[in-house]
Design a protein around this nucleic acid. Structure first.
Length: 695
DNA sequence: CACACGCTAATTTTT
DNA sequence: TTAGCGTGTG
């Protein structure tokens, strides 16, 4: 498989071969967007003789980056030579395909010391950030009027991701709480800096600061990239946009690909308006529209269009089907959640057994993560292989984080957050009082807490058992710091876990045997993950692994488990950019999808786009489902079909369509009749379309 | 300092 | 319904 421009339609070909200058590609769902980007990369480094390392393609999610790497590798692979070393995008001589955050990290690695951070800075994930906020709230007197810590944290995150500074919050003072929030934000940033830590948003903030305050250094890093591409352009926020401008400033070779109908990250500060700004900032930009859909059946496409066209303020687009109408949609209603999921799983298994559909071609989509749980249970019961994409992420599980905190502390002894996380886990008799004294003395003396622990026996604050425990702890960390420098990653980690009796400690945490088993399983899994990581990268150091953990920038390892076809379970958000023969979109009920809380934040526009994204993932079959009732802490709630489904004409469904009415049999009958009628017409039309398609 | 019991709040999406 | 938190006791 290599690059063949004749396989592209004229618009796609134009997008691929327009290599110089600014280019905006407005690409509807399923219009071959990713194919255009990957072909463009192949075209640049093939026929155009551009050095691969001069190409940068930025994506929004790791999944997208990974997918792109794979496809580029296929297009550019020279026969006889395998490109598997170091994991695709990580090689310095190839094109760089990565997320905004991974790109920023590269820049920061090179130059963060210019901004007053030590080179061994760590990244705080969300739970880490939340705990910093929490301890600030406990210490400082912030008058936030009874707002819950979690909401405070959320507001802070939100302000940061929108680019609102602490000063702005404090001076604007629309609300009295804003002033307090501004103070908190300032303190939060100060705390992080003291800990030599940055959060996800800081990756972008600091990258931009570097561009402004140290343009020479930034330019030195950027110079390599002469052709810049962005995928999912509608999801970029202000800062990401500015970063792109900085990278492309020298040559203006910037290609942005996006679709405003698929903008689903507004809650995270994404500005779909960047698409408009693009044409304003690059007046001579070429604009190419891709409007032929190659993915979905005509019926699925109709449904998608009927849902999305209800949205105001969108660039009118006409997605042209290239396939016949195909099968009708299906609507399934279960009595309760268990029943719904059972029906779905039965249906799904039938498609596999009777129609020979591979499990790998099936995905179950849902609005929010926890909704995967019942599906998992049911699939496991039936012995159907599945893969859970995303979800409560492995590396954010408490047990795993505790274990990782040891590694972080070993790598960076100044990391006070990690220190406090594991100072008394497993239990070693260093209680809260001792911890507080330790932190206070460390702050007063301006010395690292870990260094104080080493000499705890000589300090007035500590005595007896705690003092001994502290010394032993400090020595342990020092020992392993030394060992990790020279000994293999996997084995050393295993030793550490055994030395600490981590398995036993984790087991004791949970009182129920099932949970205990799961917890230990997580640690075993972590040990395996480290082994697997180290296996392909003998050179890898502890620091490399920790970074992988935080950004998860690696291509998925394709071991045996990866090759068995499995049903995919994912949220609609993480399904973006992917496609499957058959999609089950479950829990399609009001309050769940559109999500009630999301609705409270604004209109239903973004939820509707989300629904549009979900529908357009399906190539052949789309099955929608909900349950008649839902149980919420024991209470029974009657459900209505999602409003979005009511915008789809009933005739597209096989059998009864979603309706807002009750369960009247009369109405059901009417629907059935209507469905049967239009199915007939669809079939007639289908035959015509198929004939015209000339196959 | 560790553990146990009982209370409360919870259900949005990702880097 | 459950998981996580805080308080009180040993």
């Amino acid at each position: 498989m290599s690059l063949n421009l004749n396989e592209l339609n004229p618009e796609q070909r134009e997008a691929v071969t327009t290599t110089e200058g600014a280019l905006l590609v407005l690409a509807g769902a399923g219009s071959g967007k990713t194919g255009v980007i990957t072909s463009r990369i192949a075209y640049l480094i093939g026929p155009c003789q551009v050095p691969p390392s001069a190409v940068l393609a930025v994506t929004f999610t790791n999944k997208a980056a990974r997918e792109m790497s794979e496809r580029v590798a296929k297009l550019t692979r020279t026969p006889g030579r395998k490109q598997r070393k170091g994991g695709g995008s990580a090689r310095d001589d190839g094109p760089l395909l990565c997320t905004f955050h991974a790109f920023g990290m590269r820049l920061l690695h090179a130059h963060i010391t210019l901004l007053g951070y030590r080179a061994s800075f760590t990244i705080m994930d969300s739970p880490d950030q939340a705990s910093v906020v929490k301890s600030l709230l406990e210490e400082g007197d912030y008058d936030l009027g009874g707002v819950k810590p979690k909401d405070v944290y959320f507001a802070l995150q939100n302000a940061k991701s929108r680019g609102i500074t602490a000063e702005e919050l404090q001076t604007h003072r629309d609300l009295p709480a804003d002033v307090q929030l501004g103070r908190l934000l300032a303190d939060y940033d100060k705390t992080l800096q003291r800990l030599n830590a940055i959060d996800f948003e800081d990756i972008l903030i600091l990258s931009l600061r570097l561009c402004h305050e140290h343009p020479v250094a930034a330019q030195e890093f950027f110079r390599r990239f002469r052709y810049v591409m962005v995928d999912e352009y509608q999801d970029t926020n202000r800062r990401q946009y500015e970063m792109l401008q900085a990278v492309a400033a020298g040559h203006g070779n910037l290609c942005a690909v996006g679709d405003d109908d698929q903008s689903i990250y507004g809650w995270r500060g994404a500005e779909p308006g960047n698409i408009l700004d693009f044409e304003r900032d690059f007046p001579q930009a070429r604009v190419i529209r891709l409007e032929s859909n190659y993915r979905s059946s005509g019926t699925i496409l109709q449904a998608a269009n009927q849902v999305i066209r209800q949205n105001p303020n969108r660039r009118e687009k006409t997605l042209r089907p290239t396939r016949g109408p195909g099968d009708p949609l299906e609507w399934m209603v279960g009595e309760d959640e268990t029943d719904e999921i059972e029906k779905v799983v039965t249906h799904l298994r039938l498609a596999h057994l009777r129609d020979g559909l591979s499990y790998g071609d099936i995905a179950v989509l849902y609005r929010s993560n926890h909704q995967s749980r019942r599906v998992e249970e049911s699939l496991r019961e039936e012995g159907i292989p599945y893969r859970l994409v995303g979800g409560t992420r492995f590396f954010e599980r408490r047990e795993v984080k505790d274990a990782l905190a040891y590694l972080r502390l070993i790598h960076e002894p100044l990391d006070e957050v990690s220190l406090l996380r594991v100072i008394n886990f497993p239990r070693r008799g260093i209680g809260r009082a001792s911890q507080t004294r330790l932190v206070e003395r460390a702050a007063a003396e301006g010395r690292p807490a870990l260094a104080l622990m080493r000499e705890a026996a000589h300090l007035d604050e500590f005595s007896g058992a705690p003092a001994t425990a502290m010394e032993r702890f400090a020595v342990l960390i020092g020992d392993y710091r030394h060992r990790f420098e020279s000994e293999p990653l996997g084995a050393t980690f295993r030793d550490l876990m055994r030395h600490l009796d981590f398995h036993g400690a984790v087991e004791k945490e949970r009182s129920d045997p099932k949970g205990a088993e799961r917890s230990v399983g997580l640690i075993l899994e972590l040990e395996l993950a480290i082994d697997r990581y180290a296996q392909n990268r003998p050179e890898a150091k502890l620091k490399d692994f920790l970074e992988y953990v935080v950004l998860m920038t690696l291509p998925e390892e394709n071991d045996a488990a990866d090759r068995t076809p499995m049903v995919s379970l994912l949220t609609v958000h993480s399904a973006k950019g992917l496609e499957f023969e058959r999609i089950y979109l479950i829990h399609m009920a009001e309050d769940l999808f559109p999500n009630k809380r999301a609705l409270a934040e604004g209109g239903d526009d973004e939820e509707r786009r989300l629904c549009y994204v979900a529908i357009t993932r399906a190539k052949r079959n789309l099955i929608l489902s909900m349950s008649r009732i839902r149980k919420r802490w024991g209470e029974v709630i009657r459900q209505q079909p999602s409003r979005f489904l009511l915008d789809i004409e009933a005739g597209l469904f096989d059998g009864p369509a979603p309706s807002s009415g009750g369960e009247e049999t009369q109405e059901l009958r009417v629907h059935k009749a209507a469905a049967a009628r239009s199915r007939f017409f669809d079939q007639v039309r289908g035959r015509k379309a198929d004939a015209q398609a000339g196959d």
